[in-house]
Amino acid sequence: MARQVIPCIDVCDGVATDPSEVPGLSDPLDVVGIATSYAHDGADQLFLDVFDPWTAVDYLPDLLRELGKTGLELLVSVQHGVLPSPAECTQLLSAGAAALSVSTSMVEEPDRVANAVRHLGGQRLIGVVNSSGERRRGWRVLVHGGATRTTVDALTVAQRFGELHVRALLANNVDREGTGIGYDLELTRATARVSQLPVIASGGAGSAEQLADALRSGDATHVLVNKVVHSGRETVSSLSESLYQHLHGGAD
Results as ranks from 00 to 15, higher is better:
Leu100Thr: 00
Thr70Phe: 02
Ser37Val: 04
Ser238Ile: 03
Gln123Arg: 15
Leu67Lys: 02
Arg136Phe: 12
Gln159Ile: 10
His248Ile: 15
Leu75Asn: 06
Pro19Tyr: 01
Ser131Phe: 05
Arg140Cys: 03
Leu75Met: 15
Val166Cys: 03
Gln123Val: 08
Leu169Ala: 01
Leu185Asn: 00
Leu197Pro: 01
Gln196Leu: 13
Gln210Ile: 10
Val113Asp: 06
Ala205Phe: 08
Asp62His: 01
Glu66Thr: 11
Cys89Met: 13
Arg233Leu: 10
Ile181Pro: 01
Pro84Asp: 09
Gly206Pro: 01
Ala87His: 06
Val107Leu: 07
His222Met: 12
Pro28Asp: 01
Thr151Val: 11
Arg189Ser: 08
Ser26Thr: 15
Trp139Arg: 06
Val225Phe: 04
Arg189Asp: 07
Ser131Gly: 09
Val199Arg: 03
Cys8Ile: 13
Ala212His: 10
Ser94Pro: 06
Leu29Gly: 06
Cys12Tyr: 13
Leu92Ile: 07
Arg140Val: 11
Ala98Thr: 13
Leu74His: 04
Leu72Asn: 04
Asp111Gln: 14
Val32Asp: 04
Val82Phe: 10
Asp111His: 14
Leu243His: 09
Arg193Ser: 14
Trp54Met: 10
Gly204Glu: 02
Val57Arg: 00
His119Tyr: 12
Leu100Ser: 02
Gln79Thr: 11
Thr235Val: 03
